[in-house]
Write a protein that binds this DNA or RNA. Structure first.
Lengths: 147, 147
DNA sequence: CAGTATCCCCCCTGATACTG
DNA sequence: CAGTATCAGGGGGGATACTG
C-alpha cells in the first residue's frame, strides 16, 4: 500500500484488493486478528514485526475500514484492534491461501494443521467453486464478464 | 519473496503461502495467466510493470513451480509462460479476492464484473465455507487444529 | 504496555540503454 | 519481440531510544 503506482483504478477487482491488503504484513495481521489477537504487543511478538511498521500497518488497516479500535477489554487504558465486518469478509481469502499452501507447499512428512468446526472438531469441507445448481467448476469452466 | 525475514518456517500455512506469492506483482501476473496471457510483452503492457521486474518475477514464479515455460505456440523462437497445476491451484485465492473486493471496495454506481460459466454465462455461486454435511459456516464457527 | 521518533540500510522498483 | 544490464531513487522495514 502507499505504492508508487496504485492499481485501484485499473478496473480489476483483484488489483484493487491487492492495493488494500496486498502488502507483506497486512494479511498476516488480519490472520492473527482472526485468531483472536487484539493487542499491539500480541501482534508484535507474534509476527516479529518492528514496532514502527506495526503501528503504520494497524493505522492503515484501520483507515481502510478493515480493523477498528475498541477500548481494552481488560479495563486498561489501551486500545484493542478488532476486525470490522469488512475485515471479516477476508476470511475466505485466508482459507483459500491456507488450503493452497497445505496442498502444494508442504511435504508429506511435515506437521499439518486443519480447519475444523469449533467445538465438534468436525472437518470443514474443502473450498470449491460451484455453479448455482451445485455442479463443481474448474478454473477453465469460468470467465469474467463485464456487467 | 526474497525478503529479509522469511516466514516459510513460521509454522503457519498462510505465512508460507505469502512467502511464495505475497509480493506485489505475483498474484497479478497469475491473474493474467488465468486470463490466457502467455507472452512476456503481454504481461508487460497489461500490467505496466518494468521489464526487469517482470523478468525477475517470471523467473521466480517459474523456479517456485507456479509457472512453467513452453515453446511459443506461434512457432516463434520465444518462450511462453503457462500455469502449472500448482499455479492453477491458486484460482480460488483469486476468486476469493475478487469476491471480497466487489463486496467491499466498490461503490454501488461503479461498473462491476462477475464470474460466470464459460459458454452459458450462468452465474457462479458465491464462494462459501461449508461443513461436510453442507451447513454454511461463518468465520467464528471454525478453528485451526494442529494435527 | 503502547506506542512515537529517529536513524539508516538495502532492496524493490522504475527508467533507460543495449543485445540477439 | 524478449529479454539483460546498469543506474538511481525512494520507501519499506529493522533497531534503538524515548515518552506516557
Amino acid at each position: 500500500m502507499v505504492k508508487r503506482v496504485s492499481l485501484w483504478d485499473a478496473g480489476c477487482p483483484v488489483a484493487r484488493a491487492l492495493d488494500v491488503i496486498g502488502d507483506w504484513w497486512s494479511l498476516l495481521i488480519i490472520r492473527d486478528a482472526f485468531d483472536g489477537v487484539r493487542r499491539f504487543s500480541e501482534f508484535q511478538t507474534g509476527l516479529g514485526i518492528a514496532k514502527g511498521m506495526l503501528a503504520t500497518r494497524l493505522r492503515d488497516l484501520t483507515e481502510r475500514g478493515i480493523l477498528e479500535t475498541a477500548p481494552a477489554s481488560d479495563g486498561s487504558a489501551y486500545r484493542e484492534y478488532v476486525l470490522t465486518e469488512k475485515g471479516r469478509g477476508l476470511f475466505l481469502v485466508i482459507v483459500a491461501l491456507r488450503q493452497w499452501s497445505e496442498d502444494h507447499l508442504y511435504s508429506a512428512d511435515e506437521p499439518r494443521s486443519a480447519l475444523v468446526e469449533r467445538g465438534s472438531g468436525a472437518p470443514v469441507a474443502r473450498l470449491e467453486l460451484i455453479a448455482e445448481d451445485g455442479r463443481s467448476l474448474g478454473w477453465n469452466d469460468t470467465e469474467v464478464k463485464k456487467t
